[in-house]
Design a protein around this nucleic acid. Structure first.
Lengths: 200, 200, 200, 200
DNA sequence: CATGAATGAGTTTTCATTCAT
DNA sequence: GATGAATGAAAACTCATTCAT
């Protein structure tokens, strides 16, 4: 199902105009994927919301799946870069402090890359996505591995599996601002205490 | 969008044979919804896996959406009943003990009702599903509200929003048994500590 | 298209109970054919409105088409009988008087056999229905042929083609009682004058 | 029942090519609706006869009902325009002359718009069609209202209800050219005499 | 690069008809 | 005779994808 074609990168547009086009198309697709889900979103709809013709969309993305993959890849790349940038600062920080910083980073990231979670959790094609999740886990684990005092063996990896899944929880509470903010704080606090207490 | 039709209950079958049919169809649909997602699953496929003809499926469920709704409704009903049964036992328990019991219950529930999360989180139709989530939150909050010592104001509701979203986290780690079990324990521990520490 | 099967008579029921069943089914079908048209009416619906099971309907009518044919045949038979009964009385009547009597007869007939026109005009299968219309025309022509003074050659047949199509005109004006009655009188008057004037 | 969707106008095609496409599709549909009736006609068949793919048909008409409505609307519009054009000429004409002209107009119209009667008389959805018939009646009544000498009160409206229903009578006599022509003349004569005689 | 009309395979849905009870 | 669950062929409708302009 995940053909060669589908994973092909968008034909890198040479002109600035082209690059803007592509960005607009990806943004449009991201919004719609979040609103209605990947399957329920139409290619025509994506093009329309970006103010482009359907043919133009296919000019850059050979397949609907390729489009989703391109968005996910870009998002993952961005996240990866931000996590990398954190590695330096994390050196020697307390576990709770790392968790807190990570929380902020993820919060900001998800706000700017709304389709990320939805696209990463698409049912079906295990494989590529699985590798993406693994990579993310490794980066976060590396972050926690630098904590002072060090975390018990294995906890860094477990936290790396947990923390990115915590962030979407408050985000799901649309339309209940109060509760949502409360939940976010509760999660932050819960994690901090857990890490302060020590890992035995 | 959520039409009358789509919410119509399955034509309650009178005969035992019929009830078995319906159960098989819902089970088949649940499996496929988990495997490939709601949209990617075909009514034909659902019927085929249940060993029934396509017409038979439509005999009981007028719409694909109605089928999903019926499954979700049944699952939610089952969960609600189990949560209700817990109310008694929870009286006077320590917060951490309640959390632990809830963890077990949810773990067992999700194992037996695999489509529940996927169906509850379907994109699109706000409304019915939103109310379902709210009801679940209320029931869980009621559980935590009985804790001794009592939880700080509002924490019961926040926990009620958090805990059911925690359970699917380890479940997502398919094919990594070790990590998965570790993550489950980590979550359990994190929650226990948080509740033991007190809520200020 | 009009298979043997479809033209088969309903398996004549031996018991009185059976005859009532059949009558109820045909009545139910007639109503629905008028309300929603032949194609848009479902066999299930027909059975349901008659308070019978779908299987029972098929016990008497092997096919939906056979059911329609049975109703039409019965209606046509009834009309034919009534027209026959008129032949005697028409002998020697003035043309206008004959037209008037015919008008009354057709009015009463259509009120009691509402599906007749719809079923006779069903698109598709020319042949059987064409013959039915021809037979009706002949009977009515025979009626007019007895008029005193005699009608010009050929007019009896032309009138026979026209008069039965005139009756449904006021009937189409549902919900406008006043206009409807007026139209009926207008038609009657128009026809009378035409016949009084003489046929040159 | 008559949803938004069903009444949606065909996506007005911008190119000449598109307009031709739409015209061909509507013509194909009209033919088939007449031949086999609305319900018995298949969208696939309509597309095929127009030499188009099924998707192309749905490109312009979102629904089979929408297609029928579009054809009917266009036909009604054409008839309305022709009736309007007649208003001028009718001024001061004798009633019988008006009837005669109207007869000609309707005859020509029905020959060019064969699906008109069938679509206007579709069972089911009262409402839109009822209004269409009312409008037609008003236009024809306005025509008769200009007659010199004037018609008795109310007769114009009654004639407006009658005349358009008279025209299809000869048309139903397919395959009997002689009788058909005779019937047409008979009707014309009948109407003329009725109007010459005066309306008391 | 850009466009959007056209395509047709694939889905959902309907319903006449059958048949075991 | 009576029942109604079950069937599956056929129809309506969708949408990713192509291609001539």
């Amino acid at each position: 199902m995940a053909s060669e074609k589908a994973r092909a990168n968008p034909r890198a547009p040479q002109q600035k105009r082209g690059r803007e086009r592509v960005a607009a198309l990806m943004a449009s697709a991201s919004m719609l994927f979040v609103e209605k889900g990947f399957e329920a979103t139409t290619m025509t709809e994506i093009a329309a919301r970006a103010g482009a013709a359907i043919g133009t969309l296919y000019l850059f993305f050979p397949t609907k799946e390729a489009l989703a993959n391109a968005i996910l890849a870009e998002n993952a790349e961005a996240l990866s870069a931000e996590l990398d940038a954190l590695q330096e600062q994390a050196k020697g920080l307390a576990p709770a402090a790392i968790a807190d910083t990570l929380f902020d980073l993820l919060g900001r990231f998800l706000a700017t890359h709304p389709a990320y979670s939805a696209l990463l959790d698409l049912p079906g094609d295990e494989g590529w996505r699985r590798r993406m999740r693994a990579r993310r886990r490794e980066q976060i684990a590396a972050l926690f591995a630098q904590a002072q005092p060090p975390l018990p063996a294995g906890q860094a990896e477990r936290l790396a599996a947990i923390v990115p899944q915590l962030m979407p929880i408050p985000l799901a509470l649309v339309g209940e601002k109060r509760l949502r903010d409360g939940v976010l704080e509760e999660l932050r606090l819960m994690l901090a205490r857990h890490l302060q207490t020590g890992g035995d």
